[in-house]
Structures are given as structure tokens and as C-alpha cells.
Amino acid sequence: MILSRRHFLTSMILAGFVLLGAGQSVSEEYQVKALFLFNFAQFVKWPSSDFSSANEPFRIGVLGENPFGTFLSETVKGESVEGHPLVVQHYDSPAAVKDCKILFVSDSEKEAIGQILAALKDRDVLTVGDTPDFLKEGGIIRFVPEGNKIHFRVGLDRANNLKFSISSKVLRLADPGKD
């Protein structure tokens, strides 16, 4: 009886492995971060002169390895901000980045984060990342783990010097901690 139960459990655990091999899922962490990006799009205001036309897409860029799978594009599908349809754009290199309003800089770019952010400094892009030095290197919003939750911090020095405005709601909800 004990033996058979052991076998039962072993096979249950193994079944778990097999089951998992088949599935490819975006981690909960990046699902939440994708939802944050979608929310940021609605709380940051760009001057209308920043768009070439009334229906130019509002691009959310992802630079480097894409940790969101299809989750981010599914999230923004059919959504728009003041008439600009939301779309997700992937960029392989910093040089390719253009015309996006929000740019998520993937963890894969952490070695070059300083150069990337320096290059984007004068562009009207809300840079978002999750690498530890992201704000120090000149990024605007960084995701920080807070226990089991995802919070975010805002690099205030940068945020006060932008052509676009970040809603006070975002600033208020940001973690007060410094990097």
C-alpha cells in the first residue's frame, strides 16, 4: 500500500514535468509588467504635435529579448489612446528604436543600459525597465519587486524634465524608495 502510493506520487510529479514541457507561458511577473505598460500609456500625455497624424499608432516598444510573449500585444489589441491605436513594436537594437512613446528595455540589454538610455535621453520616450541601475543610468520608470508584488519607482530628476507629462496618479503610486 505504501509502495503503491509512493509510485503514485512519483508518477504524479513526473507527469507534472511532462505536462510543463508542452506549455510555454509568460511568467506572471511579466504579465503584470505588461499590464503596467498598458496602464502607463493611459496616464502619460504626449503633446499632439508628437504624432504625425490623428490616427498614427501609439507604439509601445520592447527593446531586446521579448519577455512578454504575445501577452502584451493581446493586452493592447483593440485599445487606443486619444484615437491612436496601441500597437507593440519589437526592436533588436537601440539604433532601430524610433517613433515609440513607451519603450520597455529588456533585461537582456542590461550590459549596455547606460549607452541605450543616453542615446534616448533627448527623445520623448517613456523608458521603462527592471534592471537594478535603470534609474541611475537615466531611465524614467523601473519595476521593483515588493514582496510578492510588483511596484515601480520613478526617476524624479528625469521625470521633471520631459516634454510629455506623467499623471500625478502615477507619481503618487510610485514607491518612494530611492535607487
Partner: peptide
């Protein structure tokens, strides 16, 4: 986090901040 993006995108910023997420990448 168990619903589809369609459901989840209705969440507010406050709700997002309250979401329990497993396997948050550890930082120091």
C-alpha cells in the same frame, strides 16, 4: 493572474500593485 488579457487589462494601477505574483525575479 489567472485570467485572459481581456479581463486583466481592466485592472487599475492600484489593483496591479496589489497583485500577488509568484516567482518575482530576486534582486538583492
Amino acid at each position: 493572474i489567472t485570467s485572459s488579457p481581456v479581463e486583466l487589462k481592466k485592472l487599475s494601477l492600484e489593483q496591479l500593485m496589489n497583485l500577488d505574483v509568484t516567482s518575482v525575479a530576486k534582486e538583492p
